[in-house]
């Protein structure tokens, strides 16, 4: 096991090399969203749609002049959320969240959300009872 740890440490020192490698591309994203329009927003959840193959979160955003607009954000597949113990009741309407996203290329009030998180920093879909989400290892093979 000492050898394992040694390998781990060796790899961690490679982190700086790994960070710039792009993640796997997915079919919807390459055309739909604009890499030049990152969005950094906070708002209130108005609707959660757990539809395959992509979930959608709809969030009311209040601008500095008080105007409220509803934005939709694309996220990952419900099949995996279900597998991790997330249900349709896991994120109640009215929850306050932070979103880092990229806006749709069409310019609509839509985006793909890289990060959904509560205002205290917890990830929206990785808390609570989800196995493995609390930092404990999943059941072994």
């Amino acid at each position: 096991m000492a050898k394992t740890i040694e390998l781990l440490l060796k790899t961690m020192s490679l982190m700086s090399l790994l960070l710039t490698m792009p993640a796997q591309a997915h079919h919807s994203f390459a055309a739909a969203y604009d890499e030049n329009k990152p969005l950094n927003m906070e708002g209130v959840v108005t609707k959660v749609e757990l539809t395959n193959p992509h979930s959608w979160l709809w969030v009311d955003i209040t601008s500095e002049d008080g105007t409220v607009t509803n934005w939709g954000f694309e996220g990952g597949p419900p099949v995996n959320l279900f597998r991790n113990g997330v249900s349709k009741d896991s994120l109640p309407e009215g929850s306050e969240i932070r979103v880092f996203a990229y806006q749709a290329k069409s310019g609509e009030n839509k985006g793909v959300a890289v990060f959904f998180e509560y205002l205290d920093g917890r990830k929206v879909f990785m808390g609570g009872s989800a196995p493995g989400a609390d930092g404990n290892p999943r059941p072994n093979l």
């Binding site: 694309e74 990830k123 990785m126």
Partner: peptide, 21 residues
């Protein structure tokens, strides 16, 4: 594994780990 768990915010993609995928 390490690369997967370190999400680059410039990927124009969601954080896969958050969705367990």
């Amino acid at each position: 594994t390490t690369r997967d768990a370190a999400v680059d915010p410039a990927t124009v993609h969601y954080d896969w780990t958050e969705f367990g995928m």
